[in-house]
């Protein structure tokens, strides 16, 4: 049986030489966390099952910095590496794969041009394309939306793009299904309501997406403790849990989180 994966996420500001890892709160304030490949190396040693790099600057001239980060990381980190942020063409995806990435994550560019998912999946396989969704709860119910029950009442989920700065009007649940039919092999699902809040994952959102697609779903946004991971694994079919702050700022190591989960019956790789 497949293990549940624990994935640290490194949000990279590539505006400084070599890049640095930062962490925002609710997609805004920024704290500095470290040098990308050093943190990645530490997480690998601690037992990370995979590592996600997101280029939050995502401008074309900084892609070279990101490929540098990937090359440096892949010399000493031997678990899958996923890279996202600003990849908007097959050529750009190829640069990132050639630097040593195993998967790329797409968000804005796929929303703007869904065929990009097909193009990359055709060349590199479905497993290499991760669709990232930044979803926000909307309690104003509209016709044709996929409604989910939550403790705060029924809502639908709206996709955002451009790093959470703009909304699309697109229903996140419908988009998840469509993206998988186009060839996305995995969904990285971030709750904008929870991201950086330390309130735990959005369980109804994660559950709703995991029920609608037959590809792995990575829960993201709001994780502040191993208990939050336990909750998302016990209450949903999420294949993986992604977190940033709790690892970056030394609150919990990945090893500690995994021991905690294993002791409580979750199948994780120790």
């Amino acid at each position: 049986m497949l293990a549940r994966r624990i994935i640290p996420c490194l949000d990279c500001d590539l505006g400084v030489p070599g890049g640095r890892v930062v962490k925002g709160i609710e997609f805004k304030q920024i704290r500095y966390a470290g040098i990308p490949w050093e943190l990645a190396g530490q997480y690998y040693q601690d037992g990370a099952d995979e590592i996600v790099f997101l280029d939050i600057t995502a401008s074309a001239d900084r892609r070279e910095t990101m490929t540098g980060v990937i090359k440096e990381t892949s010399r000493s980190v031997f678990v899958p590496l996923a890279v996202g942020g600003g990849i908007s063409s097959l050529d750009q995806a190829r640069e990132v794969f050639n630097a040593g990435a195993d998967k790329i994550t797409l968000n804005t560019s796929a929303l703007k041009r869904p065929e990009l998912i097909e193009e990359i999946a055709e060349q590199y396989g479905n497993q290499a394309v991760v669709l990232a969704i930044d979803a926000k709860r909307r309690y104003s119910l509209e016709e044709s939306r996929e409604i989910v029950q939550t403790d705060d009442g029924p809502c639908w989920f709206e996709c955002s793009y451009y790093g959470g700065r703009q909304f699309t009007g697109i229903d996140a649940l419908a988009w998840a299904r469509r993206a998988v039919s186009l060839g996305a092999g995995e969904i990285l699902l971030t709750s904008m309501d929870r991201d950086g809040t330390y309130d735990g994952f959005d369980i109804p959102l994660t559950d709703a997406v995991a029920r609608r697609v037959n590809v792995p779903v990575i829960a993201s946004g709001g994780c502040a403790s191993p208990d939050h991971m336990l909750e998302v694994f016990n209450q949903t079919d999420a294949s993986a849990a992604l977190a940033a702050s709790i690892f970056h700022f030394g609150e919990w190591s990945i090893g500690q989180v995994k021991s905690y989960l294993k002791d409580r019956g979750v199948n994780v790789r120790i």
Partner: peptide, 10 residues
């Protein structure tokens, strides 16, 4: 089963 099998298995 989930296809592809993607992840860690024993």
């Amino acid at each position: 089963v989930m296809i592809p099998q993607m992840g860690w298995n024993c």
